[in-house]
Computed example of a mutant assay.
Amino acid sequence: MAATGFKDYYAVLGVSRTAGVDEIKQSFRKLARKYHPDVNPGDKNAEARFKEVSEAYEVLSDPDKRKKYDQFGQYWQQAERAGAGAGYGTPGDFGGFDFSNYGSFDEFINELLGRFGGGAAGGPRARTTYPYGAPSGFGGPGAGFDPTTASQSFDQEANINLSFSEAFHGTQKRLRIGNNEVEVRIPPGAKQGSKVRLKGKGQMNPYSKQRGDVYLVVQLAAHALFKLEGDNLVCDLPITPDEAVLGGKIDVPTPDGPVTMNLPAGIKSGQTLRLRGKGWPSPKGNRGDLLVTVVITPPTNLSDDLRQLYEKIRALRSDSPRQALTNTRL
């Protein structure tokens, strides 16, 4: 193992080797906030530093991992010589811990943290959780941080991009995972961040020889009209001033095609109307609602006749919607 392979995690976090758990946690939080990718968008150095700080904390915050790391840190040169002299796989006696099975410091850390390689280029990667959310390029979305369980899984995560229509109706996609192609069925009603499980398609557990699972994380493309809020769809619907004043029946777009809705007379811009059962499908087959927010939109190209009519309306109008605001002061 090359000498440059060893990382001093105490130096990474800026603490002494006798530092307690609280001191380690406090230093980690300070550095994690400083180097978090959301604070340093596009800064690859900060992203790498954030990953290194997270890895150091994951090791030093766990008593068992810290003990093994301390042993390795003390004996890494002897471990290198033992591996070279006795042959790969020959046990070395370093305080009851066998380092000779590792070809590098990274191999030791990967096993210590439960990481065993990655997928093919462009394929799913090993899942690693980060305490402040995952930086771009490292695993899937952060799901909190538990140093006793983080990165112990042989499951993998990969993003799958869906259009609004594909997510609404459900779809089938053919994906390449490693060297294999699999047919994936996405059920109707998939949402941003929801996961589809592919059982037995993850990494090989070197001990049990069984594969973990692959979780496809849905990335939902934006739609030109609709937005998703829970099981409800929401949209803005432009209406004309005369429709707002007089009310009447208007056609409203829905995922199933246009439906006729009764617009009450005197409706205000920003009011929301509900179309029940026209929203997002749930896994049980139910539908949410469609919430339609009306937006009064004046005409932009007035004909002479239309302008004269609006001028006549202005001349006839006797009240003002701003009357109650006349005496407002601070």
Rank of each mutant, 00 (worst) to 15 (best):
C235M: 12
R317A: 09
P187M: 07
P63Y: 03
T297K: 14
K34Y: 15
D213P: 00
N327A: 09
V292G: 11
V15P: 00
N327H: 02
L290F: 05
G5I: 04
D289Q: 06
R211W: 11
A150L: 04
V39H: 13
Q323D: 10
L60C: 08
E243T: 11
T272N: 13
T254C: 07
K199Y: 01
L162G: 04
F94Q: 09
E107R: 03
F105C: 02
P124S: 09
N301F: 01
F164S: 08
A315T: 11
T240P: 00
G14N: 05
G178W: 11
T149E: 03
G5F: 07
P131T: 01
E80K: 14
K284V: 10
F50E: 04
F105W: 05
N232P: 14
G89V: 01
S27Q: 13
G96E: 11
P187I: 01
R127T: 14
L162D: 06
P264T: 09
R211S: 13
A79C: 02
A167Q: 04
S208W: 02
V295L: 08
Q26T: 14
P283I: 00
L220H: 03
E183P: 00
L220E: 05
K30D: 12
M204K: 15
A19M: 08
I267G: 04
T326M: 15
Y310P: 00
L273G: 05
K173W: 10
S282R: 15
F72T: 14
T148D: 10
K284A: 15
S54C: 06
G288V: 02
R329K: 12
Y102T: 00
V292T: 11
N205Q: 09
R176E: 09
E107K: 03
Q192H: 11
T129F: 13
R307Y: 03
N286S: 13
G117P: 00
P321N: 02
Q71A: 12
E181S: 12
R174Q: 06
A32Y: 01
D319Q: 08
N262H: 14
T90F: 07
R174P: 02
G83K: 02
S61F: 04
G178E: 11
